[in-house]
Design a protein around this nucleic acid. Structure first.
Lengths: 257, 257
DNA sequence: CGACTGTTTGAGACGCCTCAACAGATGTGG
DNA sequence: CCACATCTGTTGAGGCGTCTCAAACAGTCG
């Protein structure tokens, strides 16, 4: 029994690093403890819906989209993920992925087996807490997306989407923020429950209104406050207060609350 | 250290019961290991959005709805839950509920503290596995609801909703199934991204077509196969195959795949 | 250079929402 | 017991937001 504990304690050391990694997104300095570290080209699949797999993944660089496909071939984009974020939590029930994940640009992603995650969770309370938090946040994000699609107009959805991108990509608020839309108009539309034409029209409208400039995949935020106003239904001139939380999980979607 | 382990082993016994409970939904026979066991009247809140709490709950009898409220007062029904299902997983990130949960009829619900859950997870691999599976399923359910709202017509949504109810309430397939709609038309509509009038109209239409009968909250399924056909977009006469999974997590929503 | 994909813009159609009126059930007070 | 209010659910008419369809343009690749 004592032998067992000493074994565990060895693994524990590794864990706390992984726990930190999950917490801080400070990924590159924990190479030694990561099993697979792999580069994916633009358009390559990390995994596909139906794949039997017990891995979860953390994005180190790049960006990916995840989506589910229905029997009739319909695709539903579930979300876009950026460095520091986790993939594959949906497979931990049946060891089968229910979504597909594809790189939107050249990306580096590392994976952990389910067994690894479970073992670490059993040993390290901090790591366990982190995993549970990740799950919980994933659920919260889904809730917010649900309300976005169900209750907001097309304009509001696009405005909120842009604001979400801003914080997910860790930009500071400020004037003239440049960001790259790594996903296509079709993907954005699908994610927001719209069609590509509607997204295009609204982006053009926002540009005419002086809120943004768009040129292909290059997007510049000119007037963030105006964008925030557009994202809220009623008062276009009210001040919106950011409820700052420990991590940038959902600042702009938090506008929904 | 040995003392510690013996302490843990004591708790372990309890755990495996709780693990079973989570697995099988065979709830009533594990009274001794459940902390709080509480009765809620129709319309009473189990918890409210914003409540600081670290509890998760399991429904023993009755039915509940969970929803989130936006800043402008908009409500979005997230889901309906029935006996054996879990509530409150969204609070395990920040120890603050992001959704509200209210009983739709007199219900019995028991709660566990986060600490309890975490401790058990650390000790009992089976329990830990169960908790992770629950999280994973919650995410999968959200994905499916997303696709439902984003990609299906109003008729399909209602058809799928009825089929989902059927399996969630553990009815066998068959002719002339009676079930009770414990939620209001407004709640159904909100859940499906519609308005109450649309739901009412579609239910009436389904009745005219001989698929169901509705009288207030009493609903009878006359022709389940026809309902299944309606839930799929294209071919109204194709045979739909149920992919049977271990537990009734999402049979009818699985029609989406 | 042509073929192809992704994006933009316009015109028209349609599905669902909005608004309104009504019916049925339930509860309350006289 | 009835009159009245209230609440949920039903049904109809009209309006609007988004989709559909179509065309043109830009960028990329062979």
């Amino acid at each position: 029994m004592i032998l067992l504990m000493s074994d565990l304690e060895q693994v524990l050391k590794k864990n706390q690093c992984l726990a930190k990694q999950l917490t801080l997104g400070n990924i590159s300095s924990f190479e030694g403890y990561i099993s697979n570290d792999q580069q994916y080209q633009d358009g390559c699949y990390i995994f596909r819906q139906g794949d039997c797999s017990d891995k979860i993944f953390i994005i180190k660089s790049g960006s990916i989209k995840s989506f589910i496909t229905s029997a009739d071939g319909n695709e539903q984009v579930i979300g876009f993920r950026f460095p520091g974020e986790v993939l594959g939590l949906d497979a931990l029930d049946s060891n089968k992925h229910v979504s597909s994940v594809v790189a939107m640009e050249n990306s580096v992603i590392c994976g952990f087996t389910r067994k690894y995650v479970e073992s670490l969770s059993l040993i390290d309370p901090v790591f366990q807490k982190q995993i549970i938090s990740r799950f919980s946040r994933e659920i919260i994000q889904d809730y917010q997306l649900l309300m976005l699609i169900n209750k907001k107009t097309a304009e509001q959805r696009v405005a909120i989407f842009l604001l979400e991108l801003l914080v997910r990509m860790n930009f500071d608020s400020g004037q003239n923020i440049h960001l790259k839309l790594s996903m296509s108009r079709t993907d954005i539309a699908n994610y927001l429950g719209l069609v590509a034409e509607t997204v295009s029209r609204i982006l053009s409208r926002f540009e005419r209104l002086g809120m943004i400039t768009v040129k292909k995949k290059k997007l510049q935020i000119i007037d963030e406050q105006l964008l925030i106003n557009y994202s809220t239904s009623s008062q276009p001139s009210q001040k919106t207060i950011y409820t700052a939380t420990e991590e940038g999980i959902s600042f702009p979607l938090a506008l929904l609350y």
